[in-house]
Structure formats: structure tokens, C-alpha cells
């Protein structure tokens, strides 16, 4: 029956074509990162100088000027968001990991997953109605609130996974010594889970650092060195957006410069988180 031990040409060709096609698609997806990164780097490099990262924005036509206040504002807003999101996220993750059996826990996990897909602009609207409207003015704090809500799903999930990842034998070791629940968690389980929780936090911070949409009606932006979170504040991502859609070449140049800074910050956070994870993974 089988006269020829080779594969029928059509079948062989189909396989080769398939592999080439799928390979091309992955190269395309990965190549895009390089194209975008490269373009931002080339365009942005020219705009970056000491004045750009340290000075206030200047009006159109006035030379120099920078995004210094936006950089500071980003740091302030993200830091406050982390301060809000970390306790809620880690404790909720802990609750799910320790007591998380049954329907209500599944429901909370489901809510966290779904919240991670809710558009950031909807969360921005929420922050507006809660933190802006009642006080009748925009504020950095309202942006932090929106960012905190955006960070929560990731914080909850990574915390739960990190805590579940601590071996039962270690947990039982604490139990057997007669440590109360909180003692075992605080002194034994959380320290063991900390590297993974920190990774999750870094990824969550990376995610919100690039967020722009909710800022439009929360932080709003500012031309000044604003350090008070109760007032409107400049944010780097928002400055990029404003400059990009402006009609001025000089502002476009600054938008590319800002984009380069932003992308570097986000990539460093991501790569850092992955490296921390890798090192941890190898150790255990």
C-alpha cells in the first residue's frame, strides 16, 4: 500500500507554510515593539536635555521649558495610589488565600478579574464623581484614587497567588509552634511571600504610570510646581497627550521626549519586576 515513505508533497508544503506564516506573525508582533521603541528613542532623544527634565513648561515660542513638574506629579500621584492600593490589595489577597473557600470568595475573585478589564476612563469618571465633584475642583488625590482602583485587581491576584505559593509545611510549622493566626501570617507567611508581592506591586505601578485617560478629569494638569495633592497637578502622560494633539512642532518634539521618558520608566519597572521574579523562581 504505502509505496513511498515520504510525506505527500501537499501535506509537507502545508506544514512548512503554516510554520512560516505563524513565525512571521510572531516576528511581526515582536518587531512592532522594536519599531515603536526605536522610533520613540530617535524622536525623543533630541528633546531630552537637563532643562527638559527639570524645568516647568514654557508657553509656545519660548525656548527651553520641560516636563519637570509632570515627572514630579507622576511620582506623587502613583505613590499615593500605591499607599492606598497596597493594604487593601494585600489584605484582600490574604483573605482569599487563607479563608477563600466557597462561593463568596469565588465571587470576589471574579469581581477582581472583571474589574481588571473595566476601562480606565470609567474608573476616572468614578473618581470624578467621588473625589472631584463634591469638592468642586480637580485634584491629584482624585487621580491617585482612580489609579488605586486600577491597581487593586492586580495587587489582589498576585498577593493571593504569592501567599498560596508558600508551602503548607511552612504554614503548619508556624501553627505547630502555637503562633496565633496573625502571628503566623505576619512573621512567617508574608515574609516568604514578599518577593512575589513586590513583583505584583511593580507591575501594578508600571500599569498606572502610563495611564492617561482618567487623568483628564482628575489631576487635570498644571503649569506650576504643584506639590499639594489637594490641587490639580501636572502629570507626564497627560502632558504628552496635550502636546501631541497641539498644532505646534516644538510641542510635538516635547511629546516625543516625554514619551521616551515614560516608556523607559515603564520598561524599567517591567523588566525589574520580571528579573526579581526570575531570581526568586530560581532560588526556590
Amino acid at each position: 500500500m504505502i509505496a513511498d515513505s515520504r510525506l505527500a508533497p501537499r501535506r509537507r508544503l502545508g506544514g512548512t507554510a503554516g510554520i512560516l506564516l505563524t513565525g512571521f506573525c510572531s516576528a511581526l508582533a515582536a518587531g512592532l515593539l522594536i519599531v515603536i521603541l526605536g522610533y520613540v528613542a530617535i524622536q525623543g532623544w533630541g528633546a531630552i536635555n537637563p532643562a527638559f527634565v527639570t524645568q516647568l513648561p514654557h508657553p509656545v515660542g519660548v525656548p527651553d521649558g520641560g516636563v519637570g513638574n509632570g515627572i514630579v506629579g507622576t511620582i506623587i500621584i502613583v505613590a499615593i495610589a500605591a499607599v492606598i492600593a497596597v493594604p487593601i490589595g494585600v489584605l484582600t489577597g490574604l483573605y482569599l488565600a487563607v479563608y477563600g473557600r466557597g462561593l463568596s470568595a469565588e465571587l470576589i475573585r471574579f469581581l477582581a478579574e472583571v474589574l481588571s478589564g473595566v476601562p480606565s476612563i470609567a474608573i476616572g469618571l468614578f473618581a470624578y464623581t467621588i473625589c472631584v465633584k463634591p469638592f468642586a475642583h480637580f485634584s491629584a488625590f482624585s487621580a491617585s484614587f482612580a489609579f488605586a482602583v486600577l491597581m487593586l485587581p492586580l495587587m489582589i491576584r498576585t498577593s493571593e497567588e504569592a501567599i498560596r505559593g508558600v508551602p503548607t509545611s511552612i504554614r503548619e510549622g508556624a501553627l505547630a509552634l502555637g503562633l496565633p493566626d496573625y502571628g503566623g501570617v505576619v512573621h512567617v507567611v508574608l515574609p516568604a511571600a514578599r518577593p512575589l508581592i513586590v513583583t505584583g506591586l511593580l507591575l501594578a505601578i508600571a500599569r498606572v504610570t502610563g495611564e492617561t485617560a482618567p487623568l483628564l478629569f482628575t489631576a487635570f494638569g498644571s503649569q506650576f510646581w504643584e506639590l499639594n495633592p489637594a490641587n490639580p497637578m501636572a502629570v507626564l502622560a497627560l502632558q504628552i497627550f496635550t502636546y501631541a494633539i497641539s498644532p505646534y512642532d516644538d510641542w510635538h518634539r516635547q511629546a516625543w521626549g516625554g514619551a521616551l521618558l515614560l516608556i523607559l520608566a515603564v520598561l524599567v519597572l517591567n523588566v525589574g519586576a520580571r528579573l526579581a521574579l526570575g531570581r526568586h523562581g530560581k532560588k526556590s
Binding site: P167, G173, A174, H187, V188, P191, A192, R194
Partner: peptide
């Protein structure tokens, strides 16, 4: 316990 379980971070 059957397997040694020292607290790993201590």
C-alpha cells in the same frame, strides 16, 4: 514534621 520546614526567610 516529616520534612524539615525551617522558616525560609529567617
Amino acid at each position: 514534621f516529616q520534612r524539615p520546614n525551617p522558616f525560609p526567610t529567617m
